[in-house]
Design a protein around this nucleic acid. Structure first.
Lengths: 218, 218
DNA sequence: ATAATAAGTTAGACCAATCTAACAAATATG
DNA sequence: CATATTTGTTAGATTGGTCTAACTTATTAT
């Protein structure tokens, strides 16, 4: 049973790895907002527990065990976010912080019941996969909106960057997961996208926003 | 913001006081399953925080502040139990352990939303009061069934001892919160109570069981 | 009232998680 | 290639929560 703190380190390493970032002591210390000696010390302890492998100046790698533990925390986090939003009517911008706390609850029953109530979702509303009870995730292959050509119709399936700002922005534009977007025109000048929505309104999205939108051709 | 550990001490002192137990260092250490020096040390720290008042060999008393903090933890615990049972379909015997963990979540919004979903209950299914957002509890003035005279009609409003055994026992006898009981006869010999239920069946309750039944005259 | 028991305290230790200051090792750069 | 910069490590301290052993101070019981 990892402590709450160690669970947070596991999660940080898990995400850094998924982001293809070389997980160094320095990188980890930045992500965790702790000093380098603190991160160093923690990594040693986690290695002793058999959750990761580390050699001086080499990237930190989670072991199978560590990877599974990390995935299970992510599972708890994402199920909680969905539960808060769908069952408890919280807004998407509110759920993250609460889920950061609830993800450390040890009772598996609690999360399995959420899972059941939610109908065993495999993706959360950001389009991020929810690991199953064994820490296995369904691999998805979405495209960034920026790779889509003019005239193409796509469905919004996920967000690459789930910042609160982006969520609020999309909400204002009436775009949500599952929304169908038609790329009317791409402005050569600034790479902004002119998009036709299902309600026949036209909106303009900057290149920066488009980079964060993960879509699937329809 | 009390740490999780200190919240547990606050809760323990809160309950010991409510049970009219003289809260000594020894009593507290037993309740918390820690050594006496540990309890002693903690009590000193909590006094510094202004949550309680303690003088050598004198009973520990919560300050207004400490009382309020304790009540708020109880609020979180009881709301969680109700939410788990009523919204998430957990059995009443399963909810306690999960609530012990969730009661330490800091987000007030989370509990306020539970409260809303549950319809702002003031009593939990054991008949125990749920403190409000300010830690105020609806003072109820129930009587033990043992104080009721022959011929009197009462309504079951709460349980003084919420052991699983008692819950199962009452369930078998078809007695639940809100049941109306008529005291037909009190056996002088062993102080057992002969009770007439709403369905016109007659049952016999031992003095011991009657002590745990909190009722209101009707 | 004095001895036995219970209650409370002190001292010293440990572990988890953190810090700063100072130093060492590897990498990058002029 | 030599030096500057980045990266990692050591050492020593702190805080929160815990322990045991040994001691002191009340309470209780004979």
């Amino acid at each position: 049973m990892p402590t709450q703190t160690k669970e947070n380190y596991l999660k940080a390493i898990y995400f850094l790895s998924k982001e293809n970032i070389n997980v160094s002591i320095t990188e980890l210390s930045k992500r965790m907002s702790v000093s380098k000696p603190t991160a160093n010390n923690m990594v040693k302890k986690m290695q002793e527990k058999g959750w990761l492998f580390y050699k001086k100046y080499k990237p930190i790698k989670l072991t199978i065990k560590g990877e599974r533990l990390g995935a299970l925390i992510v599972r708890k986090h994402r199920l909680t976010e969905m539960f808060l939003s769908q069952v408890m009517s919280f807004g998407w911008e509110e759920v993250h912080d609460i889920a950061e706390e609830i993800e450390h609850i040890s009772s598996n029953l609690f999360f399995d019941r959420m899972d059941e109530i939610l109908g065993f979702p495999t993706l959360d509303p950001h389009g991020s996969p929810i690991p199953d009870k064994n820490g296995k995730i369904l691999e998805v292959n979405y495209l960034k909106l920026t790779t889509i050509k003019e005239g193409q119709k796509v469905k919004l399936c996920g967000l690459d960057n789930s910042s609160k700002d982006l969520l609020v922005y999309l909400n204002n534009k009436k775009i949500k997961l599952g929304s169908v977007l038609l790329v009317l025109h791409i402005e050569k000048f600034d790479n902004s996208f002119e998009i036709l929505l299902e309600n026949n309104s036209t909106i303009l999205l900057t290149f920066n926003v488009c980079k964060s939108l993960l879509v699937e051709e329809v």
